[in-house]
């Protein structure tokens, strides 16, 4: 083999290798976008309290990468994505909701907020497909701490949402299992809030 052929062959293999490495390190972007309309009107009587939803800027920057199908990964921002759904879930459950940036946010006093709700989110994803990357199973565990305005813990609630999607369903919506898991988690959260005696 001539030196020129060897050089061309090496170049070809280098390019393929670089491409594979790049692809291997690359996660497919997803968003967790539940159908919020499905969450409304699920509670008969709201809890007569004013609450603050506490999601910090640091929370919103948290990016999570979990497994998809075919050896690929998916990547998303759970707090940033779920914040509107959490706000809707609290609006369904309580008389009024406001966003607060910290436990010492001046809004707590100005709006006479009685509870501060801080969520913690854990996710898992999985796919049984070797050919397609969107997850076929997604879970979201929400742990919600409810504190009073003085900082005392009122209650802590834990719910887990699960979403499944098959190829026929997710081929146009790669985040479908995640969206379903988010909707399931939020509906369970609304239920848990409304049935918690500590919050009445």
């Amino acid at each position: 083999m001539s030196a020129r052929c060897l050089r061309q062959s090496w170049l070809r293999w280098s390019l393929w290798f670089s491409l594979l490495v790049w692809l291997g390190g690359c996660a497919h972007p997803l968003t967790l976008s539940p159908n919020l309309a499905a969450m409304s009107g699920t509670v008969e009587t709201k809890i007569e309290k004013r609450v603050g939803l506490l999601v910090t800027d640091a929370d919103r920057q948290v990016q999570v990468t979990t497994p998809g199908g075919g050896g690929d990964k998916v990547s998303y921002f759970p707090y940033r994505d779920l914040e509107p759904a959490l706000y809707v879930a609290l609006s369904e459950s309580f008389a009024s909701v406001a966003r607060v940036a910290s436990l010492s946010d001046p809004k707590v006093a100005a709006e006479r907020l009685q509870y501060l709700v801080k969520p913690s989110v854990r996710t898992t994803s999985f796919s049984d497909s070797v050919l397609t990357w969107p997850p076929t199973l997604f879970t979201i565990e929400l742990v919600v701490s409810v504190n009073d305005s003085a900082g005392g813990l009122v209650t802590e609630l834990r719910v887990t949402g699960e979403g499944r999607a098959s190829f026929d369903e997710f081929k146009g919506q790669p985040g479908l299992s995640a969206n379903r898991a988010a909707e399931d988690a939020m509906k369970k959260l609304i239920q848990a809030l409304s049935s918690s005696p500590a919050l009445r």
């Binding site: 968003t31 976008s33 539940p34 159908n35 919020l36 994505d81 914040e83 509107p84 759904a85 706000y87 809707v88 966003r99 081929k171 146009g172 919506q173 985040g175 969206n179």
Partner: peptide
């Protein structure tokens, strides 16, 4: 393919 469901801006 569908656009994701709209999520309201809390701002």
């Amino acid at each position: 393919m569908q656009a994701p469901p709209y999520q309201p801006s809390l701002d």
